[in-house]
């Protein structure tokens, strides 16, 4: 009994930390899908791109992965703006987001995956940093720094974006853009420009999320796909566009996955997100905090 309680405790703690990291992965989609109504299923591909950038910086230049992610943040932001520009011209303006817009992102996902395979091969890649390995020893349990650092990065990112979105003019304009484009135009703000900035931000988060990913686990090009189900399960469960809801949903999924890994084996974990997603869509499509 003692052992299983210990096991349970550890599973919940690491699930919580993992969930914090999932929030970092999902926050970009919470912006693009939740606020801009752009179903960017290629988001995990951008995250993997972030992982590989961190990998190069780390192995070739010896830079800390998180620091590397911060340095390339502007580049990811510009990349996001460019992708949105193409999406806007080719699909949003033609009012053809569903069939062809979705296929566009699916194509990007695939091209990114194959491109990464061509460059890096299918081997697992990892980074080295001082906090990968040791744990923070507490009385009842250990907190591995490998999970703690991404958790902290994720929370800082979430709080920062939340403050930006609720306090600044631009942030409020982003929150308004999906709901009322006309009102925005009356405020002399160009909805396309605002969406471009917001989409840039959403891709910028992928840089940090990617660094966190490669700190938590070694990566290879196809693991991005596993995150599609996770990310959208989290965003739908959290109620689209709400950061607090998303964080709660991310932690819930993290804990459920961690419990599943502990008690049924890690190979079952990817199925959890799908179950959560389907149940949410079937029972409560507006999410846990939804109206």
């Amino acid at each position: 009994m003692d052992v299983s309680l210990d096991l349970l405790m550890n599973a919940v703690i690491s699930g919580l930390l993992l969930g914090g990291f999932y929030a970092a992965v999902s926050i970009g989609v919470a912006i693009s899908f939740g606020m801009l109504d752009i179903v960017n299923i290629a988001h995990p591909a951008f995250i993997l791109l972030g992982s590989y950038v961190a990998y190069i910086a780390n192995t070739m230049l010896g830079i800390d992965p998180i620091l590397a992610a911060v340095i390339v943040l502007p580049a990811f932001y510009l990349l996001g703006m460019a992708v949105y520009q193409v999406y806007y011209v080719a699909f949003e303006r033609r009012d053809d987001q569903s069939l062809r817009g979705l296929s566009f992102f699916f194509g990007l996902l695939f091209i990114a995956e194959v491109g990464l395979i061509l460059v890096f091969g299918v081997d697992y890649r990892s980074v080295s940093a001082r906090y990968i390995g040791p744990s923070l020893q507490l009385v009842l349990f250990d907190l591995p720094w490998r999970l703690l650092v991404p958790f902290l990065v994720s929370m800082v990112m979430a709080v920062g974006l939340q403050v930006f979105l609720s306090r600044s003019f631009l942030g409020r304009a982003i929150q308004a853009v999906a709901q009322d484009q006309l009102a925005l135009q009356l405020m002399a703000a160009n909805p396309v420009k605002i969406k471009r900035i917001a989409f840039g931000l959403s891709i910028a988060t992928a840089s940090l999320a990617g660094a966190c990913l490669i700190i938590i686990q070694p990566v290879e090009p196809s693991i991005g796909r596993e995150y599609i189900g996770r990310v959208f399960a989290i965003c739908v469960l959290g109620g689209l566009g709400s950061f607090p809801g998303m964080i709660i949903a991310a932690m819930t999924l993290g804990i459920v996955e961690s419990l599943t890994s502990t008690f049924f084996g890690p190979s079952w974990a990817p199925a959890v997100a799908f179950g959560v997603l389907l149940v949410t869509l079937a029972v409560r499509p507006s999410g846990i905090l939804g109206r």
Binding site: V39, I41, L102, G229, V236, P270, A271, F274, L277, P285
Partner: peptide, 22 residues
């Protein structure tokens, strides 16, 4: 999922591929 907007169906099918593989 088909009672909801089309994108939810698409997302569900993406996740379906992962779960059947699992």
């Amino acid at each position: 999922t088909l009672r909801l907007r089309g994108v939810y169906f698409s997302i569900a099918t993406l996740a379906l591929a992962v779960v059947v593989q699992t």
